[in-house]
Design a protein around this nucleic acid. Structure first.
Lengths: 166, 166
DNA sequence: CTCCAGTTGAAATCGATAATCACTATTGAT
DNA sequence: ATCAATAGTGATTATCGATTTCAACTGGAG
């Protein structure tokens, strides 16, 4: 029997979020179905930015088939209850990410290779607050995306310039 | 004859942008077609955020029919040469806006009524520079969107809360 | 256990945007 | 001004992510 309560975190983050999700559903008087749990599970156990397809695929891999429509419906639900964040990195489809607490982070997006880098700046949070106050605006979420060339792509672009300039 | 060069700006902003557009096309060895001029004209003479449909409609209104495909193609072209900015306010379609110089501005988006308010903060420009430098990232554009309730919608939401709390 | 409101999923649909392709317009040279 | 080469145009079709439909199914309260 494992009694090492000290050395192991009491509950995985995913498990905590899952119970919050179940509570949210109950509060809204919505059934806790196995599909909803499966989809939320995949999202909560992943760290990256997943598309609806990614999630459907991961479910398929672990042998739990869930219809696309349900994936989309549940993702919208998760966003609505505040447990997931929706991202649009200009790929033509949305990506989703578990939203842990209120920790907002923002993104650098490489327009050449598509790489997405996350960053966080307290100053941005403060600025958001400041701007919102000025307009009497009540902020819920934000999306800060800086498009450009990542260090690698910028480097190879420079190389090409050199080659061209010969 | 109008010789009041002092009291009237020499060229409207739209006209200036149009000549820049023509120059850009020539530089790229692309024909300056009347459709491209018409589309750019509509965009440059408008202040708001226009969808492809808005533009097609405005062209229709002024009697110049242009095919949808051409509208989309030309908008992409305008974005590519840096004379237009693309926006996605989560409506399921893109909006476009003339890009005057390098003046970036950002947006507050009401999730209730959809109203879009523009704002500008020097501090944001500085922050962008700072974050980009830290990651060796070469920024091209950015999009800062703060979602929430505008003052009006926040007010009516408060009212409802009051009514409910009776 | 039973019922029923709410959910599910396959398929149909939708809506924005991109690709096709026959025809037309622009451009630079003559 | 005319011409050929080149690229653009637009009606239509295709694409693709996302939503809706609807008959069958299921969670959970009683």
């Amino acid at each position: 029997m494992d009694t090492s309560l000290q050395t192991r975190p009491p509950l995985g983050c995913a498990a905590v979020m899952m119970s919050v999700f179940r509570a949210s559903l109950q509060e809204l008087q919505l059934p806790v179905t196995q599909q909803r749990e499966a989809i939320a599970g995949v999202l909560f156990e992943s760290t990256g930015h997943l598309s609806a397809d990614d999630i459907a695929l991961k479910l398929e891999e672990r042998g739990e088939h869930v219809g696309k429509a349900t994936v989309y419906r549940t993702l919208n639900l998760l966003v609505d209850v505040g447990l997931a964040t929706e991202h649009d990195f200009d790929e033509g489809f949305k990506r989703y990410e578990a939203r842990i607490g209120a920790s907002e982070h923002d993104h650098l997006i490489c327009t050449s290779c598509g790489r997405v880098t996350e960053f966080h700046r307290q100053a941005l949070d403060d600025l958001q607050r400041e701007v919102a106050d000025e307009w009497g605006f009540q902020p819920l979420t934000r999306q800060v995306k800086i498009y450009g060339l990542c260090s690698e792509c910028a480097a190879s672009a420079d190389e090409e310039d050199l080659r061209r300039a010969v």
